[in-house]
Amino acid sequence: MKKILLLSLAIVMLSFLFTTSTINAENITDMDQISVAKGQINTYLYALNHSLVDDTIQKNIRDLVDNSNLTLLNYITGRHSIYSEWAKNNNVKFTNVSVNIDNGNIKYDKGKIYANLSTTTAVTYEYMSGKGSGVPNTFKFSEIHSLVLENKNGVYKVIEDNFYDPLRPDLSEDHVNRKVFDYNIDNNIASNALMNQKSIIPNSYKTVYYQTAAAAAYADKWTDNSGSSGTTHNPNYNYYPNNDCANFVSQCMGDSNAGNLPTDGTWYPYSLAWINADSLYNYIVNNRGWLRAYSTSTSYLDSYAKQMKVGDLVFYRWSTSGSTKDHVSIVVAFDSAGNPLVDAHTNNRWHYPWSLYSSNTTFWLVGVNASVTVPQNQ
């Protein structure tokens, strides 16, 4: 790993030097500017994601960002600290990072480069001792970046990088505003989603089974489309940029091709309980037929995590005070040590360690029953 990271750093710095020399050429065209900036963008994004696990790159990435953007520079340091702390607390070492960059739209205007693009980063880690040690575990996450670079003394430097990341405290995912019907909902999509529910059999009660394997498969399909074309959200449902977490988890639980749990008058596509993390939590916890168990006590989180099952949920608040849930994910698998891995929107996370967040995060681990008895009209 040391050799790989040192080589990575050398590539980053060589690319930086190449950019420095190229931009000083006279009579450079707009397309030349874009070409040069594209190399710098790739260098920056490569370094940004490798800096999560590498101290040296984390320090040297400051050469790629303009000093005027202290928020971004402090964020880069803070995100590295979260990964470092999690690795230490879990006896983990990171062994590899790879970044796939879709350059998207890039334009040049009056000495600045504007770029909108997406990245998918894969991170591999191993436990250093105990159960599952030495076995590689890989998770992925995606980001959409809106970048601005400016020519500073012959070198393009990043002056803005606006992107959503739950690890970034100043851009944490706000739970969907309770004025939910202010959203411009496509009624045709809503109808299609409702039609995905199975037809009702005319008896008074029925037992329904939570199809957890199908829920996990659905979650995987709509978080990681690596190597395939198409979107990473189901087009049969509305999508809420930066606020799609509960909508996504509800689909995993309720779509007939996924968990197949029945909707009712409170929980149905685009209801508050469907698209709002806090309301979804209250719906499940107050619906005793659904709730298996839950834990929010810090002392018991790790031990309860070992008891979680595929299809269970993890709720988050981006602070240690208060009780409103800001985010939710669904358990889809377990790593080599038996710790839960989750999928989530937004941004997309695939097989992500459930606890890899800031120490300021509050967690609620919620177990969902595999079968429940409900009125026949649900």
Rank of each mutant, 00 (worst) to 15 (best):
A246D: 14
K152H: 10
N91P: 01
D54R: 02
I189N: 09
G78Q: 01
D343C: 15
T124S: 10
Y237E: 08
Y44L: 03
H327R: 09
V366E: 05
R79W: 00
D63H: 11
M253A: 15
L301W: 04
L341C: 07
I41F: 06
N96H: 13
P269R: 07
I144E: 13
T263I: 14
A37F: 02
S336T: 14
V53W: 02
D343R: 14
W222C: 01
K152M: 10
Y218R: 12
N116Q: 15
N234H: 07
V310F: 09
N260C: 05
S226K: 09
V249N: 08
A122Y: 10
Q58N: 15
N234C: 05
T346S: 12
K157A: 02
L70S: 10
Y205E: 06
G265Y: 12
Y114L: 15
Y209V: 05
A122I: 05
D165A: 14
K59S: 12
D335K: 06
N42H: 11
L45S: 03
L17V: 11
S21Q: 13
E173Y: 08
A190I: 04
N360F: 07
D55K: 15
D30P: 05
M31V: 12
S297D: 15
R62F: 12
L48A: 13
F248K: 10
Y127S: 04
R349D: 02
S323T: 13
P202T: 02
Y183S: 08
N27T: 03
F363C: 02
S323H: 09
Y294W: 14
D54F: 08
S21W: 03
S271W: 06
G130H: 12
P166W: 00
L17Q: 09
C245Y: 02
G132F: 00
K309Y: 00
D66H: 10
K131T: 12
H351G: 02
E160K: 15
A305D: 01
G254H: 15
A337V: 12
N116R: 11
G230K: 04
V249K: 10
K306N: 01
D312P: 05
A193F: 02
K157F: 01
K152F: 06
N100L: 13
W354Q: 01
D302W: 00
I41A: 11
I330Y: 03
T56F: 06
G132N: 07
M308C: 04
Y164S: 15
M308R: 04
M1N: 10
D335T: 08
G132Y: 08
P166K: 02
K93I: 07
S256W: 04
E143W: 00
H233N: 08
R288P: 00
V208C: 00
S250G: 11
Q251A: 12
R349K: 15
Y183K: 14
S199T: 04
V342H: 05
A25F: 05
V99P: 04
N153T: 11
Y210A: 04
N188W: 00
V36G: 07
M195T: 11
N153K: 11
P241L: 10
L313E: 03
V342G: 09
D30H: 13
S250Y: 00
